[in-house]
Design a protein around this nucleic acid. Structure first.
Ligand code: MN
Ligand code: MN
Ligand code: MN
Ligand code: MN
Lengths: 218, 218
DNA sequence: AAATAAAATTAGGCAAGACTAATTTTATTT
DNA sequence: AAATAAAATTAGTCTTGCCTAATTTTATTT
């Protein structure tokens, strides 16, 4: 089995791989985890020895099939716990991520599957991310962001990329949650700011960074 | 906050203190945790620095009020998670202890209280142990064991002391669980073995050690 | 092509939490 | 009271997972 740190690195690599198709470098991992690149190099060696990743200076870090599978199961646990915390314990969506960050490391052969069943086999977590099934399969992630669409487009918030409470609380203040209808009214040329109409109501201006963290349906 | 190891030591000291009123020595702690006495001495120093225990060569290890409070809250979390695993996820009573051993260390200000509420404020865990309340108060522990009573006595299984799956599976095989009525028929002089009648049915002989791990009501 | 900047790696170190082996202290026998 | 046994403590070591500082490699400018 894997240590807590190994699991966090695995999940980070998985995340970076899903997100951008870009090359996964030690620096990128270090930035994401808030660690020093030297530490990342240490861990790359460990995960390579365990045959969970392959590191090639040209291609960057890649997950092996085993690494992929293991990472997926950690993500599965994380998202199932998030659903539990929100639906059963009544937490708000900006509070659950950090707790799930610890719960995801609880290791027991049948725990995730029992939790899944108890929760009624949810498809998506409270941030709109698809929950991997026991076999590792999962629904496609939404990939188009609010910042990608043409002005005038009407769309629906399908998921959020950023799950920090800073972002989620801002969304709450704007009355935006999963399912909210948004129209992109205008893109400001100068800095990419977006003028949007939330739920057919008042217009608000948000930053480009904001738009890039909202995944949408149409 | 405390590290995982600190918490496990705290809980161990609390346990030894509740159990026997005996002096809590480094060796006793080492044995309970399966660690080396030298390691225990290290940790005694850390917990002393943190003012969670007081160590006196004569009196052994004692919890300070703060140490007691912290230990109680860990026990609270452990027992609440055990109820959750059994009642909500359908685990058997011999499977839950080890998982709760990890879950008890998840730290979040409101998690235990929310879980408590979600479970309907249970008084006892699946092994019959009382669950401490948020304020640290808890029902009195049962203290009389099956090995303590006089032959002829009719009693009710209130709790089990040992929570290893070896013991719990043995109980299951004998159809004994919390609430089962047992009559102590005879005590064998030679080695303290107990002849008992389970649920008014067939007679079985069990060891003294067995009897000492069954806590009873009358 | 050189110069410069950025990224990756190595070397060395630190804290936590465990260990073993050696020593000292305390308790129990004789 | 000595001798012996047991318990406690110290000293030194190891692994994990992180760090900083120095160096080397790779990429980007000029
Ligand atoms: Mn994590
Ligand atoms: Mn999520
Ligand atoms: Mn534990
Ligand atoms: Mn229990």
């Amino acid at each position: 089995m894997h240590t807590l740190s190994e699991e966090n690195y695995l999940k980070c690599i998985y995340r970076l791989w899903q997100d951008r198709g870009e090359k996964i470098t030690p620096t990128a991992i270090a930035e994401w985890l808030g660690n020093n690149p030297a530490s990342v190099v240490d861990m790359i060696r460990k995960l390579t020895d365990k045959q969970l990743i392959i590191y090639d200076k040209k291609k960057g870090v890649e997950l092996t099939p085993q690494g992929q599978k293991d990472a997926t199961l950690i993500v599965r646990r994380h998202r199932l716990w998030e659903v539990f915390l929100l639906e059963k314990l009544g937490y708000h969506w900006d509070e659950i991520h950090d707790i799930a960050e610890d719960l995801e490391h609880i290791k027991d052969a049948t725990l995730a599957d029992r939790l899944d069943k108890f929760l009624g086999f949810p498809e998506y977590d409270p941030h709109g991310d698809p929950i991997p099934k026991a076999n590792g399969k999962m629904a496609k992630r939404h990939s188009i962001t609010l910042a990608d669409v043409k002005p005038g487009t009407h769309c629906r918030v399908a998921a959020v990329k950023d799950t920090t409470s800073a972002f989620l609380q801002y969304l709450q203040k704007l009355s935006i949650s999963i399912g909210t209808k948004i129209q992109l009214v205008e893109k400001i040329q100068f800095d990419g700011s977006l003028v949007i109409s939330i739920g057919g109501g008042e217009r608000t201006t948000v930053s480009q960074k904001f738009g890039e963290n909202i995944l949408i349906d149409m």
